[in-house]
Amino acid sequence: MNFKGTLPTLILEALAPEPSHGYRIAQQIKERSRGVLDFKEGTLYPALHKLNSEGLIDSYEGVEKGRPRRYYRITESGKAMLAKDRAEWRELSRAVTLILGEA
């Protein structure tokens, strides 16, 4: 499914509970959407870099199963942005449902 434009919000949502690395973020998005949001994983990292340069997430070196990994965590401005995006999404979703009706 095409979900262009919402990937940054989904990344922030995936990082909200705890820091994570790229592969796990991708798997979380796919699993939580029950496979509906199946995106190309090579496009995840440019989105992560953009969020990082906007100060919405930051990154640090970590280790998983003895392998060095880059972990990403949400910042305070990232949390604020996520709250704003959630509110906007609820409003949009409610409006579209009013027009199209419940599925």
Partner: peptide
């Protein structure tokens, strides 16, 4: 295959890196 199209990734990388 999961990584997708390398050229599409390149276009996006060039916008952020």
């Amino acid at each position: 295959t999961a990584l997708g199209d390398a050229r599409a990734a390149n276009r996006q990388y060039r916008q952020v890196l």
